[in-house]
Nucleic acid binder design. Structure first.
Lengths: 349, 349
DNA sequence: CAATTTTTGAGGTACGCAACTAAAATTCTG
DNA sequence: CAGAATTTTAGTTGCGTACCTCAAAAATTG
């Protein structure tokens, strides 16, 4: 048995460092917190002592002493599908957690699909906020609002949907073109050796994430799976009833329809239409977001795969990124990267 | 724009509560921490004040005052494949993070594949540890060692590989039978409509996780994909060279070999044999764990899918669970559940 | 060398809570 | 109803750090 680097039983304090370096507490404090007014020679001596004793500031004590507190706004959609409901719930949970760390989250519900409404909401945000997380729209007015917040020193992270050309600090969400490519690869491989047509249903092509997904999907489908022909994209407006009708029409018109990729919401409509047609087993259906409904369709076999982003992870990540920025701490990119989850019936959580 | 529940600008402290309830700090402290020695009437008065002011304990101040510190042992394998190397690295990172929170992690490297060595390592662990994370073996001696630690009041979590019949506090790892089923579903669907044989390569069938994976794999393959015939399981002992030879033999013997599922390590050997045979494109190969090697094989197209568990998540989760247990705090099961990731070329992180 | 600037030391306070001691209020006992 | 036993409450201290002040020491300048 090999013991790893055993650490000291009890941590060194600032005072220990001061004693070891033969200087006063105040000097150690200046060095550790990179304040000026210390000779290079003394700095070196203190840093040596820090290294020797393995000194690490106690975060609890530091936070207490600093006494900072933070206030963040989360701007979420007022209209709600299952995913957004779940996201809101996770943000609420994150808020509870943050409340113990001197962080306060206010949730603002706005119609994020209207650029003007969203932009004014951002513009009228109380100046009390040090950070804002927003489901963004990639639109000039929204971009301007984000840039203005940033210019005022407010940290802005985009959540789920990005505004890449803005000055936002960070994007918390998945790589949507890659998600579309992932769906295409699954579709192509599940339909290996078969020919036919594949339908793509989006919520709206004015939503950046939906556009990016269908772009990625088409990219792979056309280059890798020439046996499959993609039909023109249909806009279901994330509405179940409308999506049901569109799907029913598709099924009626295209006897050779072998696949459906839905890169938005409205899944209940697709399931209804598919099951009513009796072709549920013959058509490969791939969609986004694990919800109580899509889970059921997947278990039942109507749905073949779900591409998912974890709203819990996204909510926590947004809060962590904002907090780290405010405390001038680095973030761990590994931990903050939002994965493109693939769920089959067998690996559902 | 609807504002959510706006929280007070600055949080209430214990003293605010004491003043509001007309009692002393000490009394509030007893009520909040559920100590006894307070009349029911007073308790009610304090709780009302807590509710009214929305008091939440400041975790930083609480930790500082309590002054507790914790020491955990992580027992990891001394022999190393890529996954274990990566896990060790992540544990090291987690240790750095924990060091700021009064938590100390010592890493012990032992031969975890020998039950006796592993059991003695656990038995001889310093009594200074309040918690232990161990890559377990499901063996009577190991189980006994875990149970003894638990009896001594040490929190034990099993990591990556479980010992379900022991009294361990928690298992941090994936559901291995489900992972095997996931692999089988991918295999079956990628080979839809084709007949042929499928090989299963395990590291060793005496490892519980490998056995469980191949069990799940066979379960789904035989029930759902009768067109595919599984060959007897081969043991590659997680050794690349041996695995290469075995794979080459397989390819030579079975002209109708259409799939390979590797539920252990030794992937470099499989890649070599597959590429040398010229049948890399015709054989569906699915394996576990994303490493620098498997990533390359996936990108190149030799490998078709990776079933992954995130070592970073596992290391952090183990530390969080131990820490929460020691501080008698609840854990968020959502966040601690280790997902079965599926990686295709398109959704690689 | 005196005047000035830079660097360092000593000490203190505050942060919000936990845990301890001592004192007060209440209940019980004979 | 006094005095003891018990329950309930008040007061205090310390955790490790950040940040502040004031003065002393050292280095630099004219």
């Amino acid at each position: 048995m090999t013991a790893g680097a055993t650490q000291p039983a009890v941590r060194a304090t600032l005072e220990d460092v001061a004693r070891a370096a033969g200087v006063s507490l105040a000097t150690v404090d200046r060095v550790v917190n990179r304040r000026e007014g210390v000779r290079a020679k003394t700095v070196a001596r203190v840093e040596a002592a820090v290294a020797k004793l393995g000194y690490r500031a106690d975060v609890a004590a530091a936070r207490l002493a600093r006494g900072h507190s933070f206030r963040f706004a989360f701007v979420l959609p007022s209209g709600s599908n299952s995913f957004m409901t779940s996201l809101t719930e996770q943000v609420q949970r994150t808020a509870d957690w943050l409340a113990g760390q001197r962080g306060f989250i206010d949730i603002h519900h706005v119609d994020v699909f209207d650029p003007d409404v969203l932009a004014s909401a951002l513009e009228n945000l109380s100046p009390a906020y040090q950070g804002v997380a927003v489901i963004a729209l990639d639109h000039p007015r929204v971009r301007a609002a984000i840039d203005e917040l940033t210019a005022r020193g407010v940290a802005v992270v985009t959540l789920v949907s990005d505004a890449p050309s803005s000055r936002r600090l960070h994007y918390v969400g998945i790589d949507n073109p890659a998600a579309g490519r992932t769906a295409a690869t699954l579709m192509g491989r599940f339909l290996a050796g078969q020919g036919g047509t594949v339908a793509v249903i989006a919520g709206s092509l004015s939503l950046r994430d939906h556009t990016e997904r269908q772009f990625g999907f088409h990219q792979i489908l056309s280059s890798e799976y020439p046996n499959l022909r993609a039909l023109p994209v249909i806009e279901g407006r994330d509405d179940s009833e409308r999506t049901r009708e569109l799907t029913a029409t598709l099924l009626a018109r295209h006897a050779d329809l072998r696949g459906i990729y839905c890169c938005g919401a409205g899944n209940r409509g697709i399931a209804d239409a598919l099951e009513a047609s009796g072709r549920a087993r013959d058509v490969v259906w791939i969609t986004h977001e694990l919800t109580q409904y899509t889970r059921r369709f997947l278990v039942r076999g109507t749905l073949d795969a779900i591409i998912n982003q974890d709203p819990g992870h996204e909510a926590r990540s947004a809060a962590r990124v904002l907090l780290a920025h405010c405390m001038e701490e680095p973030i761990s990119h590994d931990q903050e990267r939002i994965r493109i989850d693939i769920f089959l019936r067998d690996n559902l959580p």
